[in-house]
Nucleic acid binder design. Sequence first.
DNA 1: TTTGCTTTTGAACACTTGTTCATTAATCTT
DNA 2: AAGATTAATGAACAAGTGTTCAAAAGCAAA
Lengths: 193, 193
Amino acid sequence: MARTTGSHSDITGPRVRSAALRLFARGGYAAVSMRAIAREVGVQAGALYNYTPDKQSLLFDLMRGHMDELLESVPKRGGTPLDQLQEFVAFHIRFHADRPDEVFIAYMELRNLSPENFAEIEGLRRAYEDRLEAILRAGVKSGDFAVADTKIGTLAIIAMLTGVNTWFRREGRLSLDEVVAQYWDMVRKAVLA
Amino acid sequence: MARTTGSHSDITGPRVRSAALRLFARGGYAAVSMRAIAREVGVQAGALYNYTPDKQSLLFDLMRGHMDELLESVPKRGGTPLDQLQEFVAFHIRFHADRPDEVFIAYMELRNLSPENFAEIEGLRRAYEDRLEAILRAGVKSGDFAVADTKIGTLAIIAMLTGVNTWFRREGRLSLDEVVAQYWDMVRKAVLA
DNA sequence: TTTGCTTTTGAACACTTGTTCATTAATCTT
DNA sequence: AAGATTAATGAACAAGTGTTCAAAAGCAAA
């Protein structure tokens, strides 16, 4: 179907999502009103409802979009467990460093999701964790890694890597390459047999 | 001065703080109303203002109380860097596992603090991080540890340890002793020369 | 220029928000 | 029992909440 007539929908829609993303990340879902989002877009509050059925969906769509992209981008397996782990560490840090607002929301606003929406996001997160755990298990099986409990190892590594987002600034003392190098050094030593 | 007369203040006061703690942790500062806190205490909203000048102070006092206790409890230095590090890891996991609500608030509600309050909490957190960094530096100096950048090492370890709170449940598969043991294993290997 | 469709406005709805305060109730001291 | 002091109520305030919808405005094709 041809583009609808008289439409700014393809312009305003993305602007609504991006304003919501920025404001939610800065102030928190509960503290950001629909009118504040509308003001940021330059429109009246009522107009937002052409682009989202309600505020909750706005949050959920941002989170699901982020998790979908994360799962699509995570490197597929290939090479030794150590190679795979290195690739995963570098990927995780870089992907998250590129999307500070999305990451912040995905971690902080889980409790503001309805139960069904929460379950869906939680499932996607679990699927991502499973990618890392599969690598750890392969390494343990091959004898390259010494990890007592791969589930704990997975969560520990992800928490450590995601923590980069709380302090890393592009203009800061260290380049992302240097950060990736040191985190990889720590992760490698932590899991190696 | 003697205890004030006609007073339930010493009963209601702690109940207000504990209700606020639990509700803030569950729903988030912005999403919890003063009336909701009052209902939990079994009192009308106006009565809360006998115990806090405003909602912001309620949050801030909870956070500062938590950080003060954290800094008072963190083990003082003694023994080799490796011993000190082990003690720190065990302390951090256990202290945080005992206070899930306080920890959750201290990490999630920073953005809801006024600028001055934020600066104070941030200073306390920095002081805590400095305790760990001092241990890492001592270990690097003595040649026991191989950590390229002790600041990064500090933040990485703390993020990893604090992550325990997102999944650990007392009734779960693993005892806290087992959790501490595995995290210590990973941290030790990660920093060792 | 008229017709048909999309997008936006702006007002309205029914509630909830943090906070204040005069009034009432409860307790302790004398 | 009387007086003093504190705590709690409950109503009020002004402002803000998410959401709906008839009406107006904008635009493209006929």
